[in-house]
Design a protein around this nucleic acid. Structure first.
Lengths: 137, 137
DNA sequence: CTGCATGCAAAAACTTTGCACCGCC
DNA sequence: GGCGGTGCAAAGTTTTTGCATGCAG
């Protein structure tokens, strides 16, 4: 019932080789090099589809457009308050937090997402307030 | 420099007495009973303002519009995959996770947000797949 | 062939903003 | 009064969708 499409494969490949959590627009601009006629609608449709079937991850930062991550290994995300960049973050010792959250809760906790905020390494080092990154492009 | 406004006070009071994390639209509909001429723009302006000064919290669920929470005591949120409702969740034992996240990270972790997903108590109980809540209204 | 996927464009959903007027301080 | 807040409406941003056509199975 899920039919192969070159566009979807290309999108998934693209994400698998990026570590900067691009937006749909960024994916679109890049995939356009291979498929000049692809439409933004198709990019959104495939991004949502891939996220639903667990091949990629959708990241809602709470500011600006959603971002997408092709890395499905368990990890967290850090969002810089200063420059807006999104970085991967390995945090060990959080394997049990669904169980912690289940305590005194009548429902079923099946998963969680967590975002860490602060200053990224580059911004923490800078004395001057110059955003070193605004958006991926 | 921050001037008092009856509209803002009303919005803050409204949120302080709700525990269902309403959307801007819901806030608007309710505040309209007291201020029939208030505009949605004003609601958004005040919600953003209150969130910036730390009087309320903005919740980006990743699906649908942002929600707002007047409860500033430390707590987490649970989002039901089934009916979409948002509930408060007390999780103890997570006080140290910013420190855990800082390990092997060159920047400065200043805070975090976490959302737990699964089936809320009502949906977990139901055998039938009937959403008991769609949106707050 | 059959039906899901695509391209295109229009529209929907959500949020922000410009401007003239209003009301705190 | 002066300046921030408001109401209104228009515009901005991000995402979804209807429809005719294209391509995988």
């Amino acid at each position: 019932m899920l039919k192969y499409s070159r566009q979807r494969e290309s999108i998934q490949n693209f994400l698998a080789n990026r570590y900067d959590h691009p937006t749909a627009e960024t994916v679109y601009q890049n995939i356009r090099e291979e498929f000049p006629n692809i439409s933004l609608g198709t990019v959104y449709r495939n991004l949502n589809l891939l996220a639903e079937i667990g091949e990629i991850q959708k990241i809602s930062t709470g500011a600006g457009p959603d971002r997408f991550d092709g890395n499905m290994h368990p990890h967290y995300h850090f969002i810089c308050n200063h420059c807006g960049c999104v970085m991967d973050l390995s945090v060990s010792g959080l394997e049990h937090i669904n169980i912690l959250a289940s305590q005194n809760f009548g429902g079923a906790v099946e998963g969680h997402v967590a975002y860490f905020y602060g200053k990224c390494p580059t911004c923490a080092e800078d004395k001057i307030s110059l955003p070193h990154t605004q958006k991926t492009s």
